[in-house]
Design a protein around this nucleic acid. Structure first.
Lengths: 150, 150
DNA sequence: TGCGATTTAATCGCGGGCGATTTAATTTGA
DNA sequence: TCAAATTAAATCGCCCGCGATTAAATCGCA
């Protein structure tokens, strides 16, 4: 596959990214179901565990999600009892999202998940790390292009 | 970042895959909108352009999608006039999906898209190819694990 | 032969995901 | 000062994605 055209390469790459994401999603679904979290909800939790009390846009910026996606998602998380949503007193346009006791405690139950997934990949840490960096490069390239188009 | 734990690595990797997929999806959306296709619909078209007249399960197997996802998607594609859906006379359980004239002709209009995306990545072909192989490895690892869990 | 098991799509309900639009709060600047 | 521009979330309609279930056709085997 050395004389492959760029466009065929792209076709295969977009397919790989597409199906790898689905594979991750499926794996996480089974691991997260006992905790009562979905995969995107888990990503939000990771951000909040790292840095509690963030705005909707703040979270959206890090995950690349619009408020039209996040608002209903956060409402479901609120209903599940993991987060609180309250208007910022300083700036009433903003909604601040923060962990409840339950949400904070969930951190410990989620402890083993990462290692479990890393093992499921069947790839050594060094290789995963290299892949991570390549993906970041790719994403930055695409993001730059998406921005330029506006 | 050399003494990173496997679970942190996993967190970052799943995030990268997640957001890279979204970045691809957004880019394709803008490119495909003029053709009247969505990104998953485009993936189906690629399969049919390569190999016309496939069953729902055949397509689903290649894309990793369930009939519960494909049936409505294919119905929308049929309504758009790109494919035909008809019961297989040999085996009435099967539904065969085939290109219409319009769908086949669309192949030419989609010509430039691959190159366009490959350019948008801002990465040289060799690097993309290497990334492709790494992703395939990762996906196969995850898929194997998902199967083993059943 | 005929009946239970299997296979194939379709359906349903729910949770994402986004573009376009709306509403409300804040900022800007004439 | 105060009206226009901007910003933050929310809402709406549509498309995807899956698990669970269903309906129908086929297969397999006693």
């Amino acid at each position: 596959m050395s004389e492959m055209s760029k466009s065929i390469l792209d076709q295969m790459l977009c397919f790989e990214v597409y199906s790898t994401e689905h594979a991750f999603s499926r794996l996480y679904k089974t691991l997260l179901a006992p905790l009562g979290l979905t995969y995107p909800q888990f990503l939000v939790m990771i951000l909040l565990w790292e840095n509690d009390d963030q705005t909707v846009n703040g979270i959206g910026g890090q995950l690349g999600l619009e408020s039209s996606t996040l608002t209903p998602l956060l409402k479901r998380m609120e209903k599940s009892g993991f987060v609180r949503r309250q208007r910022d007193a300083e700036d009433e346009r903003r909604v601040r999202v923060s962990l409840t006791e339950t949400g904070d405690a969930l951190r410990h139950e989620a402890k083993g998940i990462g290692t479990c997934v890393a093992d499921a990949t069947g790839m050594p840490g060094a290789e995963l790390k290299a892949l991570l960096l390549e993906l970041r490069k790719l994403r930055n390239g695409l993001a730059t292009h998406n921005l330029a188009a506006e």
